Computed example of a mutant assay.
Amino acid sequence: MAAKTLQEFLSTTKEKDLSGDAFELESSHMLEVRVDGLVWAKAGSMIARKGGVKFTRQGMLEQGLGNLLKKAVSGEGMTLMKIEGQGRVYLADVGKKITVLRLQGESIFVNGNDVLATESTITNEIKMMRKAAGMMTGGLFNVKLSGHGLVAITSHYEPLTLPVNATTGPVFTDPNATVAWSGGLSPEIVTDINIKTLIGRGSGESIQLRFAGEGWVVVQPYEEVYFQQSGGSSGGGGLLGALMD
């Protein structure tokens, strides 16, 4: 590839203003948020800002009693920050691909580690599972997003959406490769003894999520590993956990 002049570089990498939405992709890996009031974002995801904005870590009481209790039980949770004021904030998450969705009263479930930002009109609720197999991964979780407004979710590389219906039958996914699913689905944790025996592993492909009903599930071509931290909490959230809801 030929070298660019400085002016060519500045022209091709300058910020875009292609829409009037609060969320706009500057690239597939960087999100611009136009703040005019309040926006929620993943803690630590800010890479640049301008204007009169301030950042506040989500308070315990703001999480709601239900979310707070589930975090206490699981030893983990989705850590958000409030972005308030007027200005522009640029967000990214370890180079992951960002997808902006507009919810129009629907509900979706998202891997807790893959929620990058939401407008203040979107509600979030931590959902946990209650199968013993889930405890092997440290009690991981997912988040239900509902309402009217924009949400930004992340994935490693290009995601794939698989339909779930009576024609396709159940869809089975690796929990660490599962990004999101439609609000009407309730996955079950299943164990494939044959795979476990053949591969000789006690986790991974031997533990799967089973989706049945009407809806869709999004997967990524990457198995995200969540490392155990001291005190028994999991590194960034995930989808396996102990179906408390």
Rank of each mutant, 00 (worst) to 15 (best):
T168W: 06
P175I: 08
P159R: 03
Q208F: 01
T168V: 07
T168C: 10
T197S: 07
G184K: 04
D114S: 09
S120E: 03
H148S: 08
S182R: 05
A117T: 07
D174H: 09
A132Q: 15
F211S: 00
T191V: 14
V171L: 04
M128Y: 14
R201S: 14
G149I: 08
I126Y: 11
I207G: 00
A177W: 02
T167K: 15
E214I: 01
F172V: 04
I189Q: 14
L145C: 10
E214C: 01
T178M: 10
M129S: 15
G112M: 04
S186K: 10
T121Q: 01
G147P: 00
N142D: 12
L162T: 09
I199R: 02
V171F: 00
A117S: 13
K127L: 08
R210A: 09
I195W: 09
S203Y: 13
N111F: 11
A132I: 15
L150M: 12
V171R: 01
T173G: 10
E119A: 08
I207R: 03
E214W: 00
G149A: 09
I126W: 03
E158N: 07
N113M: 06
S203D: 13
T173S: 08
I189P: 02
G149H: 04
A117V: 07
V151K: 00
G184W: 01
K131N: 12
V115L: 13
L198C: 04
K144W: 11
R201Q: 08
T167R: 13
T191H: 10
H148Y: 09
R201N: 11
W216G: 01
A212C: 08
K131H: 13
P175L: 09
I193W: 07
G213Q: 06
T123I: 06
F141Y: 10
V171M: 02
S146T: 11
G202L: 09
G200F: 07
E214D: 05
S120L: 00
P163L: 13
I207W: 07
N194T: 14
I195D: 07
E119H: 04
T167D: 10
H148V: 10
F211W: 01
A152E: 15
E205D: 05
V143C: 06
V190W: 15
P159V: 12
F172G: 02
T137G: 03
G147F: 05
T123D: 12
V171C: 01
T178C: 14
S155N: 08
I207F: 10
V179D: 07
F211A: 03
G112D: 14
A180F: 12
W181R: 14
M128W: 12
S120C: 06
M129N: 13
G134Q: 13
E214Y: 04
M129D: 13
E188F: 02
S206L: 05
G184D: 05
Q208T: 01
K127S: 01
E158R: 02
I199Y: 08
R130A: 15
F172P: 01
S206F: 00
N165F: 05
G213C: 06
R201H: 06
G200N: 08
F141Q: 03
S155A: 11
A152S: 15
A180I: 03
T161E: 11
I153A: 12
M128S: 10
G169L: 07
T121F: 03
M135H: 14
K127C: 00
N165P: 01
E205Y: 02
V179N: 02
N111Y: 11
G215I: 02
S146P: 05
T173R: 04
N111A: 15
G147T: 02
L162K: 11
G213V: 09
G149E: 09
N124A: 12
T121G: 07
